[in-house]
Design a binder for these strands. Structure first.
Lengths: 192, 192
DNA sequence: GTCTATACGCCGATAGAC
DNA sequence: GTCTATCGGCGTATAGAC
């Protein structure tokens, strides 16, 4: 379901109205900073300088707005292309890199919004398209699709528990150590 | 924070009022069936046959009610005691066992309610007490506490993604296969 | 001490006037 | 297109009846 109607635009693309871009920008920032539940449409509208009803008018619902502005797009793809024997550690290191705060914020917001079925389903679909299928295609042996799903499950779990194992205050050395340990566990599913 | 006041009782223990037990029972069922967000206090009260205000009166808030009636208690402990070399697969198999639907329902409800900070923090605390510290104590080598946290992160990720890799419709054989594969990945962090 | 009735201030979402 | 007014529902608080 790429389009709900013909005149829709990517909210931050060229064709989008300034108002739409302002809403999308404010929504992304607030969703990333406070999470899905704590960021209200009224608050997003105020930050964007528009009327709350306009947000619904342009994006349909809070769920749809969230799905439209929060995502990880093609972030993983480049890191699936290197040597298959170290892709687990490279994926993990990329996800935990201190400079990728926004990627983690988006990913974390999605993982934590799993109580909303629509968000959960769209997230799984994104993971499948952008990570699971691409990774599975490079793997050999039995159950490559299942094993690739389990890799994505591990990444989801890492983000969910990130605060408990250091979080944004972790030193680069700590991040590297987590990437080494967790990456090896992930690798066990890619090249057992 | 075990007690908010001195006269509190475990909601299903002997000392609890019938009303409290009815609320706790209805809350547990609805939280497990519909998740945190979709189960409203008014609905829980109706199912328990009491006034919605009573739910707040007895349990303080929706967050506290959830934390009181949803949990996994000592479920993991027995499976941490066997041979250390296979604890990864045994933990996973236990979590995915077809007869442990309620455990999965509770675990899943907590994982999906992570958007609420209070729930998330209490969950991490439970995991630490009931899983991470006990597992870490049996492990050897460097970073045992960190590695045990990463094991818990893996289990969280598996539950979060459970629907995507089969879910409750999975055959016993499929569950066993997931337990074998994912258990091996978990084991990599316990006995590398 | 339990419980009921009522109300407050949010929320997401809608209908219709400008 | 944009704003005003409003809806039903939510979590929560409190006053007071039994």
């Amino acid at each position: 379901m790429e389009h709900a109607s013909d005149d829709e635009q990517a909210p931050e693309a060229e064709g989008a109205t300034p108002t739409q871009r302002a809403i999308a920008l404010a929504a992304r920032e607030l969703f990333e900073a406070k999470g899905y539940g704590a960021a209200s449409i009224r608050e997003i509208a105020k930050a964007a300088g528009v009327d709350p009803a306009l947000v619904i008018r342009h994006f349909g619902s809070k769920d749809e707005l969230f799905a439209r502005v929060i995502g990880f797009d093609e972030h993983f793809a480049p890191h699936l292309d290197g040597p298959l024997g170290t892709v687990g550690e490279r994926l993990t290191a990329y996800l935990l890199d201190a400079s990728h705060t926004q990627l983690r914020a988006s990913f974390s917001a999605i993982v934590r919004a799993a109580d909303h079925e629509r968000v959960r389903v769209e997230f799984q679909d994104s993971l499948r398209r952008l990570l699971v299928e691409k990774l599975s295609a490079r793997m050999s042996g039995d159950d490559t699709l299942l094993r690739a799903w389990l890799v994505s499950a591990q990444l989801v779990g890492l983000i969910h528990s990130w605060d408990a194992v250091g979080g944004e205050s972790a030193t680069p050395e700590a991040r590297a150590q987590v990437a080494r340990l967790y990456g090896a566990a992930i690798q066990k599913l890619i090249t057992p």
